[in-house]
Design a protein around this nucleic acid. Sequence first.
DNA 1: CTCGATCCCTGGACGC
DNA 2: TGCGTCCAGGGATCGA
Length: 301
Amino acid sequence: MPELPEVETVVRGLQKSVLGRKILSVWIGKSDFIDNPAEFTRLNGQKIASIERFGKFMLLRLANGERVAEKPLEDAANETASLLVHLGMTGQLAPSAAEIPFDKHTHVSFALDDGRELRYTDPRRFGRMAYLTADLLANEVAGAGADPLEVSAAEFAERVRSRNARIKALLLDQSVFRGVGNIYADESLWRAKIHPARVGSKISAKEAETLRRVLQEILNRAIVMRGSSISDFLDANGEPGEYQRHHRAYGREGKPCYRCRTPIRRVIVAGRSSYFCPKCQPAPRPQKSRRRKSKSRTTSR
DNA sequence: CTCGATCCCTGGACGC
DNA sequence: TGCGTCCAGGGATCGA
């Protein structure tokens, strides 16, 4: 499950291997995960001018030959299109020798000007691809959450403490923080000793700052370790990451907490498996029944 | 605003 | 060996 560190790992690999290459042609197999497959012919002849990560998205900025540099900046910006790639759960984007047969689930292949192919392979097709003009890209980026690695203490606290949703849901919400997924949400909550079902508005300023700090530490460490390979994540070189060895909560149901030896528990929060230590991460107030008090009041309807 | 449910999709784990 | 069933999960969407 590629989250921020995994996507960053793939991006760094692609920067080394395909940056600057020109796309000669595009082959598309199944296309139900592509916004606008018919537009992909526009990629032909374009150069991969930059490769960036935005949350869990990869953005391959394209440049139309050499003409871009000659044009006024604004025109160039308007002409610049991007290929957006989201790996979903099982997506892989990696260069391959053209002679190697397609994997069973290779759905897109870009022929490059050095004879190789950049291939997108995704068994479950939970990923997404789109050819985005500048305005479509702006649209895509609008409404995205804060970058968890860049967010200030004040903004992090604000985004968490102004909400009544559970902290786990907030961490997973890409319009709150972009790039965090189930693994790193659980890992950071364990480290910060915060129960996943705690409500954002009831998290103290101090707890919020602790959470921000450990989240950043964990994400940075995971990037150094080239991500977590828990199911089938492989980077752009086909190599697995190592961070899964450092997981302290995720996937450890029944195993002893690294701090207090209490068995790690798993509950569903925000529709997702959430692993936590019931002792280190105390549950919030029961806050169950909402209809306790003024039952006599009639709701206007 | 927030929730849960449902759907998308396939492979892997598990039970028989 | 071969079924069937359940589960995993990021994100969109819908109804409560």
